[in-house]
Nucleic acid binder design. Sequence first.
RNA 1: GUGAGUGUAGCUCAAUCGGUUAGAGCGCCGGACUGUGGCUCCGGAGGUUGUGGGUUCGAUUCCCAUCACUCACCCCA
Length: 428
Amino acid sequence: MKISSVKGFHDVLPAESARWAEIEATARDIFDRYNFSEIRLPIVERAELFRRSVGETTDIVEKEMYAFEDRDGTVLTLRPEGTASAVRAYVEHAMQTQEPVTKLSYFGPMFRRERPQRGRLRQFSQIGAEVFGRDDPAIDAEILLLLSDLLQAIGIESAEIGVNTLGCSDCRPAFREALVAWGESHRDQLCADCQRRLQQNPLRLLDCKQPQCVALRDGAPRMIEHCDPACGEHFARVRQLCEEQGLELVLQPYMVRGLDYYCRTAFEVVASGLGSQNAVGGGGRYDGLVKSLGGPQVGGIGFALGVERLALVLEAQGGDAPRPAPEFYIAPLGAAGESAAFALGHRLRAEGARVEVDSGGKSLKSQMRRAGKMEAPYVILLGEDEVGSGRITVRDMQARADRRGVAALDTDINELRAALSAAATAEG
RNA sequence: GUGAGUGUAGCUCAAUCGGUUAGAGCGCCGGACUGUGGCUCCGGAGGUUGUGGGUUCGAUUCCCAUCACUCACCCCA
């Protein structure tokens, strides 16, 4: 009986993984430019970590975490997100004592037990970044610029960054009360979900998509108008700094986020081509989180991007996934050719070339066909003639020409490349 | 978690009202060319019709269950 993968857990096959590699390489480059350093975090954490950071009543913690008891009774969980782990590591290693500002990036799988859909998997991969030790508007703007640069470098054309301020622990309670009061006064016009939200998580009233609630929303209080002066000035400055650098942010006064730790600047990246799962990333400021997990009172801000969703957007844009081709395809003919091919292949690889060595038993025709399919620019033929003379024949696939005896069998890679380009030039 | 749709070859899809040997294109392998790819032509392999049950003389087709995927809700990356 065949064994299949688990629901919501997918293989990323070579055709797709090349795109992933490109996305990740691009991210590393951009993170370097902003002077972020990678942190590699464990996939398993204590369940408590997420209950205390993400929030006891959030959907993620309430119904989406994979949790299990270890043999010694510890309740472990497959991490549903990366920020909590990064904060835990920051606190655990007392990183604030090493440097005033810590800038971390991370890559890796996250796990949430949701109903799978296109762009929504139970194991999905994130690219994330976090900054600890700064709470000024400039670092928020730096993060937003980094995010924007990253999206652009990856090639996401339709990305739009929506921003809002969520206020802080001083001004949010008052806003919350205003919102509840407003909600109560319109209770009978709200959808059933929102009537429930009114009790449990009133901020969520704002991003309901039900038509009746959307229509009602224009009269709802906005955080941007209810937050205290410090939060308001902070947010205005963040937007100004971004605008000065040519980054357009879309103010979304009703945006809220699904994780409890966010405050002040919050943002979401949406892109087209994903259907209803159109968020490719999101993040925000979380000034109380480090302290609440036992660390110093330092501010933090970060974001995460979903790799699967980025790949889907690129696919929807029609871009081809990269398909790396070997530089040399070595086609042996017969037993003598095979052992020469094996040795030559090993040497060229040691010298840095990408090389595919076929086995000797196959017809030249089928080897040529395979080389053509792989888009190898050169096929090295090794049969009786070549082994006997000690000179190799190279088929220049693009020129459709054979270079007989173009190099010695014991050539090195530089000689070989030079001989091939000389042969091509001589031909005109 | 809720509601709905779809499951046929590796992939994309056919198959009349329930009818006897389930087809095509692409891909794969081989040949036309005994040492030469892409184009063309020819041939071949590949299927428990998602799985399990039921109805029927007979099920890819109808019914039930189950699993997976997809869409919307929800949520978020």
